[in-house]
Design a protein around this nucleic acid. Sequence first.
DNA 1: ATATAATTGTGTATAGGTTACACAATTGGT
DNA 2: ACCAATTGTGTAACCTATACACAATTATAT
Lengths: 238, 238
Amino acid sequence: MGTALQRTIYQLRSEDREFFQIAISVDCVIFGFDKNELKVLLIKSDLEEFNNQWSLLGDLVRPDENLDTASYRVLKDRTGLDDVYLEQVYTFGEVNRHPAGRVISTAYYSLINIKDHQPMLSDNELHWHPVNEINTLAFDHKTILDTCLQRLQSKIEEHPIVFNLLPEKFSLRELQNLYEAILGVKMDRRNFRKKFFLMNWLEDMNELEQDVPHRPGKLYRFNASRFSNGKTKTPMPV
Amino acid sequence: MGTALQRTIYQLRSEDREFFQIAISVDCVIFGFDKNELKVLLIKSDLEEFNNQWSLLGDLVRPDENLDTASYRVLKDRTGLDDVYLEQVYTFGEVNRHPAGRVISTAYYSLINIKDHQPMLSDNELHWHPVNEINTLAFDHKTILDTCLQRLQSKIEEHPIVFNLLPEKFSLRELQNLYEAILGVKMDRRNFRKKFFLMNWLEDMNELEQDVPHRPGKLYRFNASRFSNGKTKTPMPV
DNA sequence: ATATAATTGTGTATAGGTTACACAATTGGT
DNA sequence: ACCAATTGTGTAACCTATACACAATTATAT
């Protein structure tokens, strides 16, 4: 049993199956935003059945760790990042979802500023994929990804969490591009700005963008203290 | 191991612990509506640590059954009802949430027409409790209940699921009382009616209420075929 | 039979939020 | 000096949400 738990879930061999009845794992949908695209961090599956397919980052939950803790651990191990936004979404428990045995998996998604992520040397099989271009993944991971994306889409309609995907200072154009990328819609620029200023979430940094080949926009940062939950209506889409 | 799985999770003894590392269970928050109150079906806990406390209905997930299937099984066993509304909400995985060992539990809620529920003879420890009057439950079941209630509240804002809590034919007053009970708010009667007719969910049965000591209201039934998802805005609150 | 109590069924006006839409100003690049 | 690209700004039309009152209907009590 110990050996099974020390390997990652994707290395489970069928010989291990007799050692437990049901194993539980976490899978993390790690979202990032780069070049106006929503991306997700994937790893090349090392299971033969899923030869050359990509999969989400996950691991078995240890007997002495909370579910959330396991999810943070996977995230920390793979991105080096601490203190990230993390939300549990759904638990996938189909009997045959994992070829090596009965493994139930709880899915989380997290939002990170992709620029902060320095891939580890040993992680040359990690890659940021544009969410829009992913058609298939190993296991039921495409379903998990879709479920987490839907949750993200509905969550940002009411909660100011997208800022986790941006650097501390950002322009309104970057913010709007991000909303458009997540929701898959085009928005009106004037209405977008109006709405955000009404919500009073943004603090003007009195700085301008650098290195843009056009008139630079002002930089803002998210000011959580101004977020008065429930006062303003749903922020998006504009 | 077999014996542990054949007992219900609430009868797990600490001697069973050595047989598995992590067990997985489902807990069902079974909602009903009666006498203008939202109720939940509870059972008297038989664990000593939770002497005299009530708990949700749950059971261990069997190695050969899906999570959803386990949840349906609990529901069928306890209510005799099939074909009910059931939705997974959240998985609770704190290391110490269960006194008998490491048990992770996936919470579901279901909506049933309380009148259809005929308590089994052997189930004299089952009871329908008004949700508003529940302050403590065994284990972390109060947290689970709260989480499921919140999910129900947000779900009915966009989806026509409350009809599962009503008999086939109902009056608009009953429907409004139900929304008010779930959301904990008072609504305007005229606006409520206007909104529902605009949404076009209701089919007029051309019948009147019976046995009410006042002018009877018309009876309606929910017509799912008229539910055009996304066409009308959030139905509630009025 | 009549009066009473309780509840149904109905419409309108106001306020507030959402949407559609255009042009001058600024910056970098050539 | 000009061009390309993008920022920053306001208003009118539309739609939705809310607040609100009275006549009609039924059962019940007298």
